[in-house]
Write a protein that binds this DNA or RNA. Structure first.
Lengths: 243, 243
DNA sequence: GAGTGGTCTAGACCACTCA
DNA sequence: GAGTGGTCTAGACCACTCA
């Protein structure tokens, strides 16, 4: 038997939600671990199962918990597999969504050009990292990316062998730099491809390419990464749901 | 007393949600009007109030209904001020978001080509309406649109003078045809502009243009409009927030 | 004071998981 | 077969709105 603390004027489901959220924040359970069952919680706190379910529903819709029918309710693990297509909207012309392999052409410490400094909210000529990367499907180049990161948080990237890592950068940022990308803004336009990018992408000079600029931020809203990607228009399609 | 149609394998709250969504799509109630009370619905469909609440909860979280404690549950009024930029993501190169003026070049009843029939979920050669429209900023053409609508619901458009209306089609669809656009899927690519579109957009042949395809749906998820817009890449930029 | 949505109970039964 | 979450019932009582 347990008591709900917190403001008695709030509904019981809200108070239970708060109590559970606090215990989760204090690592009472590890990611991937199950919290007590609904019936255990309802007898522990003397609440009906409906009220317990409502509290858990809130935490599920906040992406803090995850239900699995027949098994239990679990603390969510950070989910790279799902965030993958969250931040990857390009698909092949046939509508497929595969993760293209990654080939890092260069990564080096430089000082920030003004556009980059502005995008990342850094002073002019601040220390940044520039990465040039090619994405390939079936060995064919499909995206050419230039990626800019504040050196302060991402120094560790210069010291690891990126060829030993998977094609997705955000899990790498998290594992090696402790930086979590939470949101991003993308903006698209198109251009006739320059000679340099034509060579990278194996397309004729002046053919149309889609240009995507992305600014990625952490949960606090601070800019973490700015990137510009170019892909040949014929191979890719960018999709959005508007609701 | 009323029966839920739809798939008996689905949960009752899901079936009630679908039934209500369909009636809303068919204009059983006007925007701003109240739907029946929870207790009226629970006796009409022989469901407990908990189940009715869950169905309504879904429609509320879809932004279709709006609860007001003590008053009732209401059909949400479409908010054109916000939906305007909700469905209009292009901005000028300088980052401004203006609504371009509209010039309808043609509107006529035709039979659906296969791509259009498929997109709209209609049989091949079904009766549709094709509209060709130019969008202009400061007198300069910025977007060329081809718009396809099922003739059954949009017949009324052929009988009104579109030049007397504002530049936004969705309020017109609602006012004259009773059709409300709720969601849309957009997909983008780019191409080297054809001669026809180059002339419409006043740009050199083969310069890069952004091509946007949009399928707009009503609250029941039925396709209402399919459009393809082309805009010169230099003038416009398409922006998205990913969360 | 009548009528609305909001909270909450104390279950029953089902679908699914796993040993 | 024991245990889990998922659906659903048949209410009671509360907070709020409005004439």
């Amino acid at each position: 038997m347990n008591r709900l603390s917190s403001d008695v004027r709030l509904p019981l489901y809200q108070r239970l939600r708060d109590q559970l959220a606090e215990q989760i924040a204090n690592n009472r359970w590890r990611p991937g671990e199950a919290i007590p069952t609904e019936s255990a919680l309802s007898s522990e706190y003397c609440l009906s199962t409906g009220t317990v379910r409502k509290a858990i529903d809130m935490l599920v819709s906040e992406n803090i918990l995850e239900r699995q029918q027949g098994r239990g309710t679990f603390i969510r693990r950070p989910q790279f597999q799902s965030s993958l297509f969250r931040f990857f909207r390009f698909q092949t012309a046939s509508g497929e969504r595969q993760v293209p392999e990654s080939r890092v052409l260069s990564i080096e410490p430089v000082s920030a050009p003004s556009a980059v400094a502005q995008a990342l909210g850094l002073p002019l000529e601040a220390a940044v990292i520039r990465m040039i990367r090619l994405r390939l499907l079936d060995g064919q180049p499909v995206l050419a990316e230039e990626i800019w990161l504040p050196r302060e948080q991402f120094q560790a990237l210069l010291e690891i062998d990126l060829t030993q890592q998977g094609p997705l950068l955000y899990p790498i940022y998290e594992a090696f730099c402790g930086q979590v990308v939470a949101y991003a803004e993308e903006s698209l336009t198109a251009e006739a491809v320059s000679e340099v990018h034509a060579r990278l992408l194996h397309v004729p000079v002046n053919s149309p390419v889609v240009v995507i600029e992305r600014l990625a931020r952490n949960y606090a809203g601070q800019p973490l990464e700015w990137r510009r990607s170019r892909g040949h228009a014929e191979h890719f399609r960018y999709t959005v749901d508007i609701r």
